[in-house]
């Protein structure tokens, strides 16, 4: 419906301006067309998996191509996009639980 987008048109610039003036950018996980419904459980879980897969992949590619250098896979910047998404979407208690499971090697997901 047009009225919501109209509200957006005249309100979004204020939001952006306000955040610019104070050097603080309001930014959150964007709408993901894979999860268009009310139920967002998978979005949170998926971004958690994506983040860990990505770090694994990054780490692996680092081993393959830069075996001699001592760059860590975790410092690969694009991976941290997924980390931002899952921190925005997942309750902290879930992330804590999964991290504990990862440490213990009992995490059920396929990373």
């Amino acid at each position: 419906m047009t009225h919501v987008s109209l509200y957006q048109i005249h309100s979004m610039p204020t939001a952006i301006m306000a955040s610019k003036s104070s050097d603080y950018k309001l930014e959150t996980a964007p709408f993901d067309p894979r999860f268009p419904n009310t139920n967002q459980t998978k979005y949170c879980y998926q971004s958690f998996l994506d983040f860990h897969r990505c770090t694994k992949y990054c780490y692996q590619s680092f081993l393959d191509f830069h075996r001699c250098t001592k760059i860590k896979g975790e410092s690969y910047e694009p991976c941290h996009y997924f980390k931002r998404v899952f921190s925005s979407m997942c309750p902290n208690s879930w992330v804590e639980k999964w991290n504990d499971q990862l440490e213990d090697g009992t995490f059920a997901g396929n990373i």
Binding site: Q8, M12, A15, L26, T28, A29, P30, F31
Partner: peptide, 14 residues
């Protein structure tokens, strides 16, 4: 359907 719509959120509150 409009109530379910989410346009470019700037903030997420859990």
């Amino acid at each position: 359907y409009l109530m379910d719509e989410l346009n470019n959120p700037l903030l997420t509150v859990k």
